[in-house]
Amino acid sequence: MSLALDILSGACLFVGAVLMIVSALGVIRLPDLFTRLHGASIADTGGAFLLLIGMILQADSFLVGIKLGLIGIVLFFTAPTASHAVAHAALIGGLSPDDPGANQGREEAEEDRA
């Protein structure tokens, strides 16, 4: 039983950590802000929750499990709100959601606005 639990939690931890890497890769590789948001949301959902499940399975006391669960709940509510805030601010800030090419080379405009 304990062995099965170890294998399960190990698998969760491994897959979760790999998802974190994939998400970071997405944040680097995807072409513009709005598509990068999708890459980031993998870390907030799949990566975070698999890692938390993996840790809950290994938790040696009830309180530790509860705390991990609370972290999950906090992430569950704040992560989409933060993503939406980024997206909305970028939309208002003038980034175009339909044309990735138009968002390149905006750095100078942003930096020199002062």
Partner: peptide, 25 residues
């Protein structure tokens, strides 16, 4: 790398999520 401040904030936010889990780990 940016290029826009929004990209930076997005990256920092993801970085923060990862930090939360890293500290737990």
């Amino acid at each position: 790398r940016g290029p826009t401040p929004y990209d930076r904030i997005l990256a920092v936010n993801v970085h923060g999520t990862m930090t939360v889990l890293l500290i737990a780990l």
